[in-house]
Design a binder for these strands. Structure first.
Length: 126
DNA sequence: GTTGTGACATCGC
DNA sequence: CGCGATGCCACAA
């Protein structure tokens, strides 16, 4: 059963997965960043979208295909969200070269994608 | 129709 | 940097 879905869940999920597939190994991205790269559904206030799109992204990840590196999607704190498989996600990221703090957090200024140094990809919303 | 909740973000202290 | 409080949309009971 799917959780909350955007007005166009199929298209939304597809775009989410597409973005996640573009995340290079050894890098991580956040729900918020993904949400910013997604188009704003017509008739929806940007504010409202930005407020809840991240959760829709999470909903998309819940049904993500096997070819999507879901482990590279984390929350804005740089931490792995509480959910079954978090332990495995941690291990997978470490194997990719992502370093965790003692608290289990990732330094997004280093491993965050896109990197602020100019590895920018596509323009974003707003 | 009302209430609660979700793989979160952002602002303030 | 960390913690607490607030907000938003859609859906199930």
């Amino acid at each position: 059963m799917r959780f909350t879905s955007p007005p166009d869940p199929i298209n939304f999920n597809q775009q989410v997965w597409d973005i996640v597939r573009r995340v290079p190994p050894g890098r991580v991205t956040t729900y918020g960043e993904i949400a910013r790269r997604l188009p704003l559904p017509e008739g929806m206030d940007p504010k409202a979208y930005l407020a809840f799109a991240p959760r829709w992204v999470g909903g998309a990840m819940a049904a993500c295909p096997a070819d999507v590196p879901w482990q590279r999607v984390i929350n804005s704190k740089g931490e792995i969200s509480a959910r079954p498989g978090a332990r495995m996600q941690h291990q997978l990221l470490e194997e990719e070269g992502v370093q965790f703090n003692e608290r289990g957090r990732i330094d997004l200024t280093i491993f965050g994608w896109p990197d602020s140094a100019g590895e920018q990809e596509q323009p974003h919303l707003l």
